[in-house]
Design a protein around this nucleic acid. Structure first.
Lengths: 242, 242
DNA sequence: CATGTATAATGGTCTAGACCGGGTAGAGGA
DNA sequence: TCCTCTACCCGGTCTAGACCATTATACATG
């Protein structure tokens, strides 16, 4: 089992979070199963209890674990049943579907905002924007073509990160962005010729076109994403309430 | 200003949470305003920093506050009121979009459940089902082709109703069905030849395929609907939260 | 005037303990 | 056999510090 690197710039609690997440994904820990207690994690990884606690509490907040006083901490069931559509990144979405994520960065540029992007992000035309176009693969096969437009000030930290390996949202969170909510739209469309080749489907194949504007805790729109999902591989499910 | 009661069984961090919440509600602290720093709260209320931190972090998780390293902690803006996707009928959906609804009943039959319908409705194959196929128009033009499969016992009252004029959900509610929630999936597809003619589009046009299983308050699945929406006319928007 | 630079403040992470109340399983007694 | 009590483990709360990175500001230097 991987340990915790004290000299790493990555916080210990974060390392522990990833370790626990890994154990759940590898099914070393299964749904409903008791995970090691806080005190046992402290001892095993040589960290203090408050640090172990922070890792666990964040996973509880994310719905990955749940706790019962006096009993212990358990792996939560898949929460597909529970909630209506949640705001997730592609990485998180695929992880919940149990698929392996990989990405290819096709374009990453700093450029002035055009009229469409400026309107969605509520900034002036010409404002500096990072445009990140990625091919997103699930289980090794193309799933979506995603073009994000990000406020330069918010996302400039990601320019030095290899976005083919990182989750944009995780990077942004690490960079101090507090992601709050998004307005998203879904539309059926056909795959165009250029996109078809990249996605590995025939032109005119069905596609789900998803547009999203994401807001931070201050209510500022910091991201406009336009994604083309392969209709033959992607389907959205959600629970609706009256 | 109220203080913190050390002898109270209510945890200190929780008392502080309520104090801060109160200051926001009384507008002593306003949107976007800096709140006292962790260290200042410690001193003012005679608690340790980790305790003050817990109060603040929970309010951050709840979206009441947001933090910026090196700057401070601020009061977040009021949350967007708009809701995530609600469970609505076609009639309600179009009414909210400000479009006029009309329908044509194409088929309405009582028939035994086939394997697919039986699985979705969690009944045995051969169980009596009402199948209702309608063309749904918005502002006089075809919008969707909708095929509902309903448990006979639940929906037999609708057999005597002119479903080209009535809302299915309103009729069911009138018949005593308490609609609770639904599991819905969205998928991109192409319009087939038969459907194309009815929908008034070319075969191979983009379509949004929506499947829904609707449950009543007892948790019984009573409806399975499969709808084909015209991709050129229909788009779904919703607000997602973290 | 522009440009660094020291300083102080903030939140972020972390430690090594402490006591509390809830839950459970085993020991001992009826 | 069955019940009760107790010891132990669990998470929940809390302390009093520590060092770090980020940020703003005031000041000194070119």
């Amino acid at each position: 089992m991987a340990g915790i690197d004290t000299n790493s710039p990555i916080p210990k609690y974060y390392q522990l979070k990833e370790i626990i997440r890994g154990m759940i994904e590898s099914e070393e820990l299964q749904e409903g199963q008791l995970i090691p207690s806080e005190r046992e994690l402290c001892e095993r990884y040589g960290i203090s209890r408050m640090t172990a606690r922070q890792a666990i509490m964040e996973l509880v907040n994310e719905g990955v674990l749940y706790r019962e006083q006096g009993k212990g901490t358990f792996v939560a069931g898949k929460k597909v049943q529970q909630e209506a559509a949640r705001l997730t990144s592609f990485t998180e979405d695929m992880r919940e579907r149990g698929m392996a994520v990989s990405s290819t960065v096709l374009e990453m540029e700093v450029e002035p905002a055009g009229p469409v992007v400026a309107r969605f992000l509520r900034v002036d035309e010409g404002e500096r924007i990072i445009r990140l176009k990625r091919l997103r693969n699930a289980d090794g096969e193309p799933m979506a073509l995603e073009t994000s437009h990000l406020l330069y000030d918010v996302a400039r930290g990601t320019l030095e990160v290899d976005m083919s390996k990182s989750s944009l949202y995780e990077e942004l969170r690490r960079g101090g962005v507090s992601i709050s909510h998004a307005e998203q739209s879904y539309e059926a469309a056909l795959v165009g010729e250029a996109d078809a080749e990249v996605l590995g489907v025939a032109p005119g194949s069905p596609a789900l076109l998803i547009e999203r504007v994401t807001f931070d805790a201050k209510g500022r729109a910091f991201e406009y994403v336009r994604s083309v999902y392969r209709g033959d591989r992607y389907r959205i499910t959600s629970v609706l309430r009256v």
